[in-house]
Simulated scan of single mutants.
Amino acid sequence: MIEPEASPFPQLLETMNAGGPVVYLLCALSVVVLSVTFVKLMQFQMLGVFRNKLAKQAVKQFRNGKSQAALGLCMGCKSIRCQVVAKAIRGQMHPHINKEQAREEVLRDAVDRLESLSSHLRILEVIAALAPLLGLFGTVLGMIDAFQQLENAGNQVDPSILSGGIWLALLTTAVGLAVAMPTVAINSFFERRLERLTHDLDNLIAQVFVDNFDQTSFQVVENANAWQRA
């Protein structure tokens, strides 16, 4: 008869008990990392951080002189890029607002939105830096305990005491690295997405408030030819 496979949870619990309080603390930090990651992914998804197609289309429509069509595209999209572009277009079209002031207001709004998106990412940075140090701290404590047991053994030294203590001590370092490495990768992913979003917002705002030189280039050529003829 084939015996059922043993559940990994008792073994995991036994390993955590062997590692001591440091391993429990590192496990708690890993739960925090997972929670922050889930929350930020949901926030990024809801605000359309991973989407930029509609905002680019709206800016293209606006630069082609189709302002209402551009606003219509932005109104049908809830992404942060579309919201910022819609505000920029309304500021550019408003007859009683200075364009420089409108651009400054749009930039301020974009910075506020980026600040909201970057919230809680500092937690990931701290955990990524703290987890290896906690693991090393647990290893040092484990080594101290192992050598104390070796000293208490006196003349009846058992090598298994030292080897077992070292194994348990190194366990905390392994757990610390296991928590730190994915945390660094996750934090780098979010930071890169924010850098890309910052660049896109700056580019989109500039395209709304700066004249389309591609459309007016023929006028420059005509003026240059007229000046040469004169």
Rank of each mutant, 00 (worst) to 15 (best):
K40H: 03
E3S: 14
V221G: 00
S67F: 11
G165F: 06
V106Q: 01
V31P: 00
L136W: 05
A6K: 13
V208G: 00
I97W: 09
M143A: 07
R81P: 03
Q149A: 14
S67C: 14
M1A: 15
T183W: 00
A180H: 04
M143H: 06
F62K: 02
M46C: 08
L13K: 08
C27G: 05
Q11A: 14
L194F: 04
S160H: 01
F209V: 01
G76Q: 15
T173Y: 03
L73G: 11
E115D: 10
W167D: 08
F190I: 07
E195H: 15
M1Y: 12
R51F: 01
L201T: 05
Q68E: 14
G20D: 03
A169D: 08
S35Q: 08
M93K: 11
L136Q: 05
S160V: 03
G72I: 04
K99A: 11
Q43C: 06
Q149F: 09
I80N: 04
A70K: 08
D214F: 05
N64A: 15
K66W: 09
C77P: 07
V220E: 11
S116E: 14
L47T: 06
A153P: 00
E100G: 13
V22D: 08
F50V: 07
T15K: 11
F209K: 03
E105D: 11
I166K: 00
S7R: 07
